[in-house]
């Protein structure tokens, strides 16, 4: 079952990359989310999988009474999800404002910072 999940991670990454390479801002945004999910799953899988036993010590005990899921990747991923969401919101708003200002969704047409006909460097002292 690890391998199945590994293959699924591959699918997430592939789609994320594919969407990021498209030139439409909104598609790229979806790509960021999917790539983020893929990476979260990657860390989760790399920490080994355990079926249905949460890393919670039963009440009254000092130690869990059997094998439990690896808590470390979970802690990493939990913050990653929230930070990823903040990043997604930021990019979304940025794209939204860009669209409002530049009237464009295609990154090819956004040349404000790097104009096609940028002036040559001055040839003098």
């Amino acid at each position: 079952m690890d391998y199945v999940l590994a293959a699924l991670v591959g699918c997430f990454v592939a789609l994320g990359v594919y969407l990021l390479l498209s030139r439409s801002l909104i598609r790229m945004l979806l790509g960021v989310v999917i790539l983020g999910n893929g990476v979260n799953l990657l860390i989760f899988t790399a920490g080994r999988l355990t079926l249905q036993i949460a890393p919670i010590v039963p009440p009254g005990l000092d130690q869990p009474d059997g094998a439990i899921a690896n808590p470390l990747p979970q802690a990493l991923i939990l913050t990653a999800i929230v930070i990823g969401f903040a990043m997604f919101s930021f990019l979304l708003v940025l794209a939204f404002r860009t669209y409002q200002t530049l009237d464009a969704d295609n990154t090819d047409t956004m040349r404000l910072a790097e104009p096609v006909d940028a002036p040559q460097p001055p040839l003098s002292y």
Binding site: V13, G16, V17, Y18, L21
Partner: peptide, 26 residues
């Protein structure tokens, strides 16, 4: 772009599988 994406995805999946064959430092 699709080919590039497929290569990246396959690479990550294979890498993960290789990682899973090793031992985890717990």
């Amino acid at each position: 772009d699709g080919i590039l994406a497929l290569v990246c995805g396959t690479g990550v999946a294979l890498l993960l599988m290789v990682v899973l064959t090793g031992d985890l430092d717990t």
